[in-house]
């Protein structure tokens, strides 16, 4: 009986506004994360430059990409290290 009344009164109308907003939020997270290959390369070069102050990385094997799932977008970097710089302590002291 109550079920019938609820249906007549439109409670079953699952709130499509909330659906819309949530779907929109997710689709925009993905849209906004589509960074151009050019920018990705710039980021890679900048990362190498910073990291090289501390360790020598294998640039050819380095991987950088955006990982997307339903909830969020993450930047994933896989950077094989060839060698840790022995002189990094001194280098940081000189530069500071």
């Amino acid at each position: 009986m109550w079920e019938f009344i609820f249906r007549v009164l439109g409670r079953d109308n699952s709130n499509s506004r909330k659906h819309a907003k949530e779907r929109l939020r997710l689709v925009l997270v993905h849209d906004r994360a589509s960074i151009s290959p050019y920018l990705m390369n710039r980021l890679k070069e900048d990362l190498i430059e910073v990291i090289s102050n501390y360790m020598i990385v294998d640039e050819d094997e380095m991987e950088l990409h955006l990982n997307q799932n339903d909830r969020e977008v993450t930047l994933v970097a896989n950077i094989p290290i060839k060698q840790i710089r022995r002189d990094y302590m001194e280098r940081s002291q000189i530069s500071s």
């Binding site: 709130n15 819309a20 925009l28």
Partner: peptide
Amino acid sequence: MVKHGDMMDIDDIVDI
């Protein structure tokens, strides 16, 4: 439709 929760409202859109 906004009132009945069947359309995004102004705040939803401005927010996004």
